[in-house]
């Protein structure tokens, strides 16, 4: 499993795939927002949390179709399925690799981009915390969506349509965690909900995704 993780990370960096792409996309979206809503710092402060979360979510979406599609096309998915690796473990490793190449870098640059959006200083820690807790769920749900659409030609659009509605709870509670902290309220409840969603997806979706792959490979 470790070999698979290292291979996926090496491929993500070498093939110029998911690694830089999502990060650059995130950067561009966040930079574009002030052009769209105007330079008023008050307005930007209001929307900063939401923009950072939506931007991270869309950036996450970009590289999802690569998770299984490349392996499917070159035949290595067939070989991995017949290998000694449990398919559920394979799915979990794929999701972890996706998170390490997208979710983690997004989390780390979010406070820097928060400066561009005039995010309230009390929100910097919380945006990192909420993204760190929420992005694993984004990767895992996305991996499930990718497993459902593996084998479909040009399945990227369908994948987005399937996955985006499933991202809604994570987005709501993730953004709420930061907003409440910035407004000076107690944010324990959304934080716990966010953690619960992430843990739930991590527990259930590897099995669902493995079942979807088995059916799609027939």
């Amino acid at each position: 499993m470790r070999a698979l993780l290292f291979r996926d990370l090496a491929l993500a960096v070498k093939a110029g795939g998911g690694f830089g792409l999502s990060l650059a996309f995130f950067l561009i979206v966040v930079v574009l927002v002030p052009f769209g809503v105007g330079p008023d710092t008050g307005v930007l402060r209001e929307v900063a949390t939401g923009v950072l979360w939506v931007g991270a979510l869309l950036a996450c979406l970009l590289s999802l179709d690569r998770i299984f599609q490349l392996d499917y096309e070159d035949g290595s998915l067939d070989l991995l399925v017949t290998s000694p690796l449990p398919l559920e473990g394979l799915v979990a490793v794929k999701a972890l690799a996706h998170w390490l190449t997208t979710g983690l870098p997004l989390t780390l640059v979010a406070p820097i981009l928060g400066v561009l959006l005039n995010l309230d200083p009390s929100g910097f820690g919380w945006i990192v915390a909420s993204l760190a807790l929420g992005t694993p769920a984004l990767s895992m749900i996305g991996t499930f969506g990718a497993a459902l659409t593996v084998g479909l030609k040009r399945g990227g659009l369908l994948l987005s349509l399937l996955v985006l509605p499933l991202y809604v709870p994570t987005l709501i509670f993730g953004a709420e965690t930061v907003r409440r902290a910035v407004d000076g309220f107690d944010n324990t409840t959304p934080l716990l909900m966010l953690s619960g969603i992430t843990l739930g997806t991590l527990a259930i979706l590897p099995f669902a995704a493995a079942a979807a792959i088995r059916i799609n490979l027939r």
Partner: peptide, 30 residues
């Protein structure tokens, strides 16, 4: 756990070297 399968596609990763491709499969199969 007795079967090894080779289909029409070779399952190679283009950006990786010959040695890396084989070493990957060796570690997958232990």
């Amino acid at each position: 756990d007795a079967v090894a399968y080779a289909g029409h596609a070779d399952g190679l990763k283009g950006p990786l070297s010959v040695a890396q491709n084989l070493t990957f499969w060796a570690s997958i199969y232990g």
